[in-house]
Amino acid sequence: MLDLAIFIQNLANGLLIGGVYALIGVGLTLVFGVMRTINFAHGDFVVLGMYGAVLFDLVFGFDPYLSLLIALPVAFVVGMVVERAILAPIADAPAESSLLATLGLSLIIGNLLLLTFGGEPRSVQVPYASDTVRIGEVNLSVVLLAAGAATTAMIGALYWFLERTERGRAVRATAENRLGAELVGIDTRRVQSFVFGMGTALAVTAGVTLIPLLFATPTFTGAIFTLKAFVVTVLGGLGRVGAAIGGGLLLGVVEVLGASYFLSEYRDAYGLLAFLLVLLLRPEGLFGKTVKRV
């Protein structure tokens, strides 16, 4: 039964889906790295991106990818505002406060969407939804490839930003050592709201990329993505961008291969089991360097 062509097919699908997981995970891990906040509304920002694309499709009727032109800057600003209004004031409160605040935010986003759009699952119908590209024996979905391309572009841009720009260095410095960063004159409060804006923008991008592929429901879909993002970041190692990418790809492959060759009804459990194993055996993550003692 282990046909090589089918195996490669599954592997390719796993990697492409893993790419999208990575994109979602990167935003979460970035925010955690800098702010030490586990953002429970992260998945809801993904869903917000999906609904943005749906709205864009309803109003203008253009391809959902074009909506990124509007969605990206808007998401960035929304993220900054949310950070300033909700997270910054409780920065010095006990750690659970920010968790709680983002949980509240998640409830608010989901139910606002429910009130505006109704509970019916929404998607955008693109003409190429079921098209495939054939490479040798392998059929690759055009939508998945597009998602992969968008992921690569976004993560590439993020790397360039973090490594090559002054502000990117400030972000890395803040993540590495907040006090040290402040000592060398970095305004870490501004960095934090900037990073939260970026995290939001990444989540929204993932949402837009995913909408031709799957469906958005106001309250349900968000929780699923949040959970996936947790798994991805812990698999790789919390707070590290590169690790989240590795974790995302790994999760995609583990899920697809598990569902292909073992019991498909336990598909989600494969990711979770991998997550637990990593937590227990290598809590710093598969791609993390040292154990972070808090």
Binding site: N13, L257, A259, S260
Partner: peptide, 20 residues
């Protein structure tokens, strides 16, 4: 004969098994 967890929308692995 396969079931799946709701919320997962990548059915390719299952559908490939069915095709076989």
């Amino acid at each position: 004969d396969q079931s799946y967890d709701q919320g997962v929308t990548d059915f390719r692995p299952i559908l490939n098994r069915f095709r076989a």
